[in-house]
Nucleic acid binder design. Structure first.
Length: 191
DNA sequence: AGTGCGATTGACT
DNA sequence: GTCAATCGCACTA
């Protein structure tokens, strides 16, 4: 898989995020990502390596998991070569397998919302800081696989929820997917 | 050692 | 639509 950040953010669309807990598998197809570049003020690695963000500097394919707003864990895939602080945020999945198990991990959410949003998808798959630093291409509890599915077209928009570099169009999504956490179409006013 | 905040979510008007 | 919860950590001193 390509390692450059934007290329990885696009290449991850359509791949499957798999979680295995005590032999039980839950999984969802990645339908929405955001790129956080080197030298990007919105990237957590912008001001250099810290205890929290060190996984962003790992070779591409490693997990960077952090707690956001004290309530939600967010999962990123590190990008680029080792030593470069950049990554791709996973913002939404289309539920595929183990849906009953995922619903047990979040109370009172409809199927449509189960893995829609970066904090909900980690809750549904029980992902937290313990998974920080794992190699997502080789790990046995949490990994990204390719089932041969190919997506039709990729939409782009500005990233969601940012206070810094909010005008960069670095959000990518499977066009038309009903499981997105933000706009489904490119808004002409954004161009 | 103290302070302020954020790549969100769910509850509520 | 608005708004508070909640906490690890980066920043300042």
């Amino acid at each position: 898989m390509t390692s450059d950040t934007v290329g990885l953010a696009r290449a991850l669309l359509g791949k499957v995020l798999v979680r295995e807990i005590d032999g039980v598998v839950a999984a969802g197809r990645i339908v929405e990502t955001e790129a956080y570049l080197r030298h990007d003020p919105a990237c957590h690695a912008f001001r250099g390596m810290t205890p929290r963000n060190r996984s962003l500097f790992l070779e591409h394919g490693h997990a960077y998991v952090y707690l956001c707003y004290g309530t939600s864990y967010l999962l990123n895939v590190s990008s680029e070569a080792g030593g470069v602080g950049s990554g791709v945020l996973l913002r939404a999945l289309e539920p595929l397998y183990g849906i009953g198990h995922m619903q047990r991990n979040i109370s009172h959410v409809k199927l449509r919302d189960l893995t829609r949003g970066p904090g909900r998808l980690t809750a549904a798959l029980r992902i937290d800081r313990r998974h920080d630093g794992l190699n997502l291409f080789t790990n046995q509890q949490l990994w990204i696989g390719d089932d041969g599915h190919r997506i039709e077209s990729i939409g782009e928009s500005v990233r969601i929820g940012l206070t810094k570099a909010a005008d960069e169009r670095l959000r990518y999504f499977v066009a038309g997917s009903p499981y997105l956490s933000g706009p489904r179409k490119l808004n002409r006013a954004e161009r």
